[in-house]
């Protein structure tokens, strides 16, 4: 099926970014192709609450066949926040695409409704540049350990499937 917002849109856009405010679960239930992505970035903040549904989202992403799923830590203020994101990434077995620092310029822009000028939010912009560089490499399959990781995930999928077959017999 060549859906309009699926592969076909790539004739018109080099990059299509879907802000899945509605949630991956809702988008997939709605039956549209908006739920599919080549790369899924799961944004977190340094709170347990922000990752409550992470497990379900990751499982659904695998079901949908989304090949590249990464975490992004946002609003990091202190070294402990970085450690928090790293431990969550390890817990859920999703690599981190990057960590974005807490930035008063972003808070101020949210408060005033004005957009940041290009001079503002420099640390945040640098972090976002680094995430784009990470995504570039991920698409090219060049991140460290990526090939092995993907091979292991594929193997796990095969093992899970076979185990399910055996227990059904």
């Amino acid at each position: 099926m060549r859906s309009l917002l699926g592969a076909a849109i790539e004739e018109e856009a080099d990059v299509t970014l879907v802000d899945m405010e509605a949630g991956l679960e809702h988008l997939s239930r709605s039956g549209g192709t908006l739920a599919y992505a080549d790369v899924l970035l799961m944004i977190m903040e340094p709170s347990r609450k922000s990752i409550l549904t992470a497990g379900r989202t990751i499982a659904l992403a695998h079901e949908l066949g989304i090949p590249l799923v990464y975490g992004v830590g946002n609003k990091a203020r202190m070294p402990e926040d970085k450690e928090f994101f790293e431990s969550v990434a390890a817990e859920y077995n999703v690599p981190l695409a990057g960590i974005i620092p807490h930035d008063p310029d972003v808070i101020e822009a949210d408060r005033s409704g004005e957009n940041m000028s290009l001079e503002q939010g420099l640390p945040v912009r640098q972090a976002v540049d680094a995430i784009v560089a990470f995504v570039d490499k991920a698409i090219a399959g060049e991140n460290p350990g990526q090939a092995e990781r993907e091979a292991l995930l594929k193997e796990r999928e095969r093992v899970d499937k076979r185990l399910a077959e055996l227990s059904a017999e």
Partner: peptide, 10 residues
């Protein structure tokens, strides 16, 4: 390339 952005509100 299609990129999806997910996460809890806020």
């Amino acid at each position: 390339m299609k990129i999806g952005i997910v996460g809890k509100g806020g």
